[in-house]
Design a binder for these strands. Structure first.
Lengths: 339, 339
DNA sequence: TCACTTTTTGAAAGCGCTTTAAACTTTGCA
DNA sequence: TGCAAAGTTTAAAGCGCTTTCAAAAAGTGA
C-alpha cells in the first residue's frame, strides 16, 4: 500500500493525499477526513526512504557508541540513552545507535552526515582535546556534545554538569572537616569530566594551601573492581587518605568493601563521597552507611541534550549549558580522625 | 557530491560508477580503480535514502527499548546492546533504537516494518504470552527474540539461555546441601525468564518432595534496593530461608547488605547465589564473600541474536536456540545450618 | 579479414514520496 | 450578473540511487 495506490483508491491525486496526510492547510476538511480514514483503514505508512529522499530529512539522530574491544560498556551509558530515548519518543525522532571503534569512528561520522541518514549527531563524554568535535564542525552537521572539551576555544553546542565545581565543593567540605590527605578515584584520564573533577579537588586543597599527593589520584574504568583495588592500595600505603572521593557509585561499591576489609569504619576512620549519576538501580542512600554524594541525573542530561540537538537542527546554536550539581551530605563523611 | 556529479567528473555513466562502487563484476579493473579513487578523493558517500528507495533495503535493524514512565532502565540492557552493537559493527548494519511505551509499541512496530526503515526487529526479554511476537509474525518482517515465550506454540526464531535449567541446578545443589527453605528474589513476574527461573527452583524442590513457600518467592524490578527489602523481609519472617537465589547481581548487592545488617554470615548462616549476566563492572568474585552464580554472558547473547537476525533477513529461520548456563560455586554457599 | 563471442559501458526506467506551478471551483461583493 | 479573490485540486518534476535492457568495444578463431 503506497501513496499511488491510496490516491487511486480515493480517486484523488497523490498531491492532495500527501498534503492531507501531512497536515497542509490547503486541503478541505472533508477531503482530509476521507483521506486520513482511508489511510488508517488500509494501513498506509509512508515509505521512509522515499520521504527522506524527497524532503532531505531523516527523522533520526545518531548516538555514537564506542566499542573498544574488551572494554566494558559504561554502566552510566544505558541511563543516558534512556533519557535520550525519552526525548526522542516525545519529539518523534528515532535514534540511530552507531557502534564505532576508534578506527571506524571518523568514517562513520562522515558517512552518517553525508549520506543523510541522520539529521544530527549526539556525542557523549568527550576527551580532553577531542578531535571529534572539530570533525563534527568540519562535516557540517548539527550536533550536540554531552560533556565538554576544555581545550577547545571555539564555541560549540554542549551540555555538561559542573564537574569541577562539584568536586571542588566536595573536597572543600572535606578539608573543612579537617581532612588533608584526600584520595580521588577517578574515571579514565583522557576523559574531560575526569579531568575537571581532579581540577576541582586540586583547587579546593590549594585554596587552603595544601597539595594533593599524586599517589592519591588514580584513573581507570569506573568499575567495582577498580574501586576496590585502588582503595586497597591507597589505604595500605604509608600516606593513607582519611577521605576518598569516587567518580562513580560503582567505584564506591568497591571502595566500601576495601574499607570494611581492613576493619575501618566509614564516616569516622575513612570518609567516603562519590558522584551519583542517579542510577535507579543503585542508590547511595541504600549503602550500609548512607553515602554522601555529588548528584546530577545523567538521564535528565540525555533528555535535555537530545532536545537541544533537535531544536538546533533548524536553528543552530553554539551555546554551552552547564548544570550545577547538588552536594548531598550523608553519614559516610565525618571529621578527619585525630592523628 | 552525488552520483551524477561523480560520474560526470569521471566522464562515465552513473551506471558504471554505481557498479564499480558496489563491486559488480562487469566493470574492468582499470575503470573500477579510477572510480574508487575518485570517490575517495572527492569524499563521495551514497545517499542513504536514495539507495534504500532503489534497493528496498535499509541496512539497519530496530531494537525496541521500552520506556515505561518512571521505570528504571534495566542495567543489563546496556550490556545486551553492547553485544548487539558489536555484531552490527562487523556486519555493517546500523541499529535503530526505538523508544516505545506500551501504548506506542504496536504502532511503532508497524511503522518500522512497513515504512522500510529497518530490515528486521530485535525483541528482547519477552513477557509470558507476549502478544508482540504474534504481531511481528503478522506484520511480516524478519525478527529475532532474545529470550522466549513459553506460552507460544507456533515456532519462532529466538535465542535464550536455559533459565529453568540453571535455576533447577542451582536449587538442586542447595537442596543437596540440606537447604529446605529456599528464597527466590526474582525479576518482574510477567517476564518469561523470571517465570522460567521460578519453575526451575520449584521443580528442584519437588524432585525431593519439598514445596517452596510462596512467601519466599518475590517478583520486582531487579535493583539493589529491591534486593535489600525482600531479603530483609524474608530474613525477618518466621520462615526465614537458609538460602536465597537472586535473579541479578544487583539484587544480590542488596541481599548482601540485608544479611550483614542482621549480623548473619554469608555461606554459613545464609547461602546466597545469584544469576550473573557477566557485567564487566560488577563481578561476583569480587563480593566480600565471593558469590556463587549461574552465569551466562548477556553480551554474547546480544551479539549472537543480532547475527542470527541479519542472517535470517535473506533466509528466514524459526529456530529456537537455547544456551546452557554455567553453575559456578563460590564461598557464598554452604551446608544448611543445623536447626 | 570477418563473423562471432565475450567483456564493458550506457540510456532510461523506476523506487515512493514532496512540492512547484498551474488549473479549476467556489465565494464575496459591487 | 460578473469578476476578482480565495479556496481546492492536479500534473509533473525531482530527490539520488539501482538495475534492466541494449549497444558498443574488445577479443577470438578460422
Amino acid at each position: 500500500m503506497n501513496l499511488k495506490a491510496l490516491s487511486e483508491h480515493l480517486g484523488l491525486s497523490q498531491t492532495t493525499v500527501s498534503r492531507a496526510l501531512n497536515g497542509y492547510p490547503e486541503v478541505s476538511l472533508r477531503t482530509r477526513q476521507r483521506v486520513t480514514d482511508a489511510a488508517q483503514n488500509l494501513g498506509y505508512r509512508p515509505n521512509h526512504a522515499a520521504r527522506g529522499l524527497a524532503t532531505g530529512k531523516a527523522g533520526a539522530i545518531a548516538v555514537v557508541m564506542r566499542m573498544a574491544a574488551g572494554q566494558a560498556a559504561d554502566p552510566h551509558y544505558g541511563e543516558f540513552l534512556s533519557g535520550v530515548g525519552e526525548a526522542a519518543l516525545s519529539l518523534g525522532y528515532d535514534i540511530l545507535l552507531s557502534p564505532v571503534t576508534r578506527e571506524t569512528e571518523e568514517a562513520t561520522f562522515r558517512r552518517l552526515a553525508q549520506s543523510g541518514q541522520v539529521d544530527g549527531i549526539l556525542l557523549s563524554s568527550p576527551f580532553v582535546s577531542d578531535e571529534r568535535i572539530k570533525l563534527l564542525d568540519d562535516i557540517n552537521i548539527p550536533y550536540m556534545v554531552h560533556g565538554r572539551d576544555n581545550e577547545r576555544t571555539r564555541p560549540y553546542p554542549f551540555l555538561d554538569i559542573d564537574n569541577k565545581g562539584a568536586f571542588f565543593e566536595a573536597a572543600r567540605l572535606l578539608v573543612g572537616l579537617g581532612h588533608r590527605k584526600i584520595g580521588l578515584i577517578n574515571g579514565l584520564a583522557n576523559l574531560n569530566f575526569a579531568n575537571d573533577r581532579a581540577l576541582g579537588v586540586i583547587e579546593a586543597l590549594a585554596e587552603n594551601g595544601y597539595k594533593i599527593d599524586p599517589a592519591l589520584i588514580s584513573n581507570g574504568e569506573m568499575t567495582d573492581e577498580y574501586g576496590y583495588r585502588q582503595t586497597a592500595k591507597m589505604l595500605d600505603s604509608d600516606t593513607a587518605p582519611t577521605a576518598i572521593l569516587c567518580s562513580s557509585l560503582f567505584i564506591a561499591l568497591g571502595a566500601v568493601r576495601a574499607i570494611y576489609d581492613r576493619g575501618l569504619k566509614i564516616g569516622s576512620d575513612v570518609s567516603l563521597l562519590a558522584h551519583d549519576d542517579v542510577i535507579p538501580y543503585l542508590k547511595p542512600e541504600n549503602f550500609r552507611v548512607p553515602l554522601a554524594t555529588t548528584r546530577s541525573s545523567i538521564r535528565a542530561a540525555g533528555l535535555r541534550a537530545m532536545q537541544r540537538l533537535v531544536d538546533g537542527i533548524d536553528t543552530p546554536s553554539t551555546e554551552g549549558e552547564i548544570w550545577p550539581v547538588d552536594l548531598i551530605v550523608r553519614e559516610s563523611i565525618g571529621p578527619a580522625p585525630a592523628n
